[in-house]
């Protein structure tokens, strides 16, 4: 029983990251209908930024979160402005796809060139602290990270629901032409959206550094799981993405516990294929 509870908690704590990544991907996919294939690499960039800030200025990883978010926001905005918006105008899905794939290659190999392939970690005074709650043990950094990402998720939800910019983003997601008609500058919204999505990935990266190793391809598995979260949680739905992420985290740990840890990736991918196909079948049936 205690192993089960422990697995649940581990799944929950990991699932939070999938949620956060999925929300970023969801905002981007919702507004522009493009899959951001470099989302995982953005997380990795966030991790390296945090590491640099920690190394050079001695900042605590959690103190880096807002700084990383701002830097990543501008990085995303610049990428959107210089590369993705012009490509959106060509209306070629293939080009958009390989644009983000190419960006991913650029970032991961850029990190490899700049930082080498060594695994890096950030150790803080509390990184080895564990908290016992009944039968369950939790590492303190994981717990803090989960708390922060809960706050970020709620803030994002409130922002999209009630702020003017958030409403504009949702309007563009639903109907870009209609949004143009009522006077929303869609290009500006695209820049803000991509910046926001990338900033969320960066925040996820910064929060991970407390207990995760930093290396150039660290983001790959998170990037793909973010896509799963978007598809499972439903387009444009922030709560959906949140719960889909938690579900994914729990699924992984449950498979690892009851079947075998080496099968967890296989089951995740097969589940994803089944969900994709069944979802599409339902869509066709409804028509």
């Amino acid at each position: 029983m205690s192993t089960f509870l422990q697995a649940c908690v581990n799944g929950l704590l990991m699932g939070g990251f999938y949620s956060l990544m999925g929300m970023g991907q969801n905002v981007i996919f919702g507004a522009m209908k493009i899959v951001n294939f470099c989302h995982g690499e953005m997380l990795m960039v966030g991790m390296y930024l945090t590491w640099l800030l920690h190394q050079n200025f001695g900042l605590d990883p959690y103190a880096c979160v807002p700084i990383v978010a701002v830097i990543m926001f501008f990085l995303g905005a610049v990428i959107q402005f210089t590369l993705i918006t012009p490509a959106l105008e060509t209306k070629s899905f293939t080009n958009l796809l390989f644009l983000t794939v190419g960006l991913g290659l650029l970032l991961s190999n850029g990190a490899l060139v700049l930082f080498g392939s060594e695994y890096r970690t950030i150790s803080t005074s509390y990184s080895m602290t564990y908290i016992n709650m009944g039968p369950v043990t939790m590492a303190l950094p994981r717990l803090i990270s989960f708390g922060v990402l809960l706050v970020v998720s709620v803030a994002l939800f409130v922002f999209l629901k009630y702020s003017t910019v958030g409403k504009q983003i949702r309007a563009v997601s639903q109907n870009p032409v209609g949004a143009e008609v009522v006077g929303i500058n869609t290009k500006r919204i695209y820049v803000l959206t991509y910046g926001l999505g990338v900033a969320l990935a960066g925040v996820a990266g910064a929060l991970l550094t407390g207990f995760y190793t930093i290396f150039p391809t660290a983001g790959a598995s998170f990037g793909f799981r973010a896509l799963i979260v978007v598809v499972v949680g439903g387009l444009g739905s922030i709560p959906g993405a949140f719960f889909a992420g938690i579900f994914l985290g729990l699924l992984e740990t449950m498979v690892a516990l009851f079947v075998s840890p080496s099968y967890s990736d296989l089951i995740v991918f097969v589940t994803f294929i089944v969900i994709l196909v069944v979802r599409q079948l339902i869509v066709i049936r409804r028509k």
Binding site: S262, V270, L276, V277
Partner: peptide, 25 residues
């Protein structure tokens, strides 16, 4: 094959990765 556009790309990645995981196991 009923999936289109980005969903086809996603399923092709997942299919390939599932095959690889199957072989690893």
């Amino acid at each position: 094959f009923i999936l289109r556009g980005p969903y086809f790309t996603l399923v092709s990645i997942a299919f390939g990765e599932a095959l690889r995981q199957f072989i690893i196991n």
